[in-house]
Simulated assay, not measured.
Amino acid sequence: MKKLVCVLLLFIVFMSNEYTVQAAGFKDVPKDHYAYDAIMWAEEYDIINGYADGTFKPNATITEQQFAKLLVNFYELESPLDKLKKQTPTAIWSDEFYNRLASYAVPLNGYFDNTIRAANVKRGVVAQAITHLANGKSGLDQSIQFLLDYYISTGQNFQYENRNLQKFFGVTNFMTRAQVVTMLHRMDERNFYEISEDAQASHDNKSNDSLNTRAKNGQNQLDKIMQLTTPSKSAWNGSYSYYYKWGNGITDFNRRDAYISNATSKNFHIFITSNDGVAAGSVDGTATITSSTKAVMNKSSNGNRCVLEFERLNNALKIIEVDCRTEHDEGTNFSGTLKKQ
């Protein structure tokens, strides 16, 4: 009788633990969220984790180093024997993940620079990184087509469908945490969890290349429009962000992100994304510096009219949209004061 009681107790404990796992989740990811199943899957298999307050922030944009961690966890990539020698030598939490990805020569920008790692990752980079691991070395167009063919991802700008593959996919747009997890979930559903021969050959490293060389090989695979150079010491360069949660709903937030790179004494490149829960948009282009603290952009890299004024504050960037309606949805714009990260 005692054995039966013990068995029953063990069964109850086991079932209780199993229920806890199944019931685990994040308070900002309700069951009717489009990525609910994907996020629950990723949490169960320790691919993702949330924040200390019990949230996942599914609609927040994802940085390259956060994406790097998800890739390593999904593929369970092995650690190399050596470590990267970075241009920014300060050790940070993502070093472990970039060391592993470098071993497999995955196309990413941030191997040698902590600032680039902290910048939001573009859809084109995500496409090339995933395709490299799943299907081997591929150009940007080939990577996009791979994701579309297997319905791992879909396009964003349907006015360009069958006209311009890169614009249709939205290669320069940022991705949210939920979108990336959804991609990985679909990869799992389609059994794309084995590492490609190209990636494995880099890791096996029969040519005895250094880890830095393999990382550089990965960087060089990126299409030129996806590559980010190491920021100079210009005060303009850097990542800027603003986030405000004004309600309890999953769409009750305002977010602005900007990344300035390649700044000279005359101009700089800027990429901005805006998301107000249900309305969103992004723009990139070149801004002309008009004074030590001010700059202006008159058109986007797409050639559309986009007048934005910039003011560099103390550890912040003030953006005033004069007219840029062709680059974002109705109901939101790029105006705001963003804190330097």
Rank of each mutant, 00 (worst) to 15 (best):
Q219Y: 10
Q219D: 05
N220K: 11
N220L: 08
Q221W: 05
Q221Y: 07
Q221C: 03
Q221V: 07
D223R: 05
D223I: 03
I225H: 05
I225E: 15
I225V: 14
M226D: 15
Q227W: 05
Q227L: 10
Q227D: 08
L228I: 13
L228E: 14
T229H: 13
T229Q: 15
T230G: 05
K233W: 04
K233E: 15
K233L: 10
A235K: 14
A235P: 09
A235V: 10
N237K: 02
S239T: 11
Y242R: 15
Y242H: 15
Y242V: 11
Y242T: 12
Y242A: 15
Y243P: 03
Y244H: 13
Y244Q: 13
Y244E: 13
Y244A: 12
W246H: 14
W246A: 14
G247W: 06
G247C: 11
N248F: 08
N248D: 14
G249I: 06
G249D: 12
I250R: 13
T251K: 09
T251M: 04
T251A: 09
T251C: 01
D252Q: 11
D252T: 07
N254C: 03
N254K: 14
N254Y: 08
N254E: 10
R255G: 12
R255F: 06
R255E: 11
R256D: 06
D257P: 00
D257R: 03
A258T: 06
A258I: 04
A258K: 06
A258P: 04
A258W: 05
Y259S: 15
I260P: 05
I260L: 09
I260S: 10
S261I: 06
A263G: 04
A263S: 14
A263F: 02
T264V: 00
T264H: 01
T264N: 03
T264Q: 02
S265P: 00
K266N: 12
K266H: 08
N267P: 01
N267T: 07
F268S: 09
F268L: 03
F268A: 06
F271D: 13
F271K: 14
I272D: 12
S274Q: 07
S274D: 05
S274N: 09
N275P: 02
N275R: 02
D276P: 04
G277F: 03
V278C: 02
V278F: 02
A279N: 11
G281F: 01
G281V: 04
G281A: 04
G281Y: 01
S282C: 04
V283N: 12
V283F: 09
V283L: 15
D284W: 06
G285P: 00
G285T: 03
G285R: 02
A287H: 01
T288D: 06
T288Y: 01
T288V: 07
I289Y: 00
I289W: 00
T290Y: 01
S292K: 15
S292F: 10
T293V: 07
K294S: 15
K294F: 04
A295G: 10
A295E: 08
V296A: 02
V296C: 00
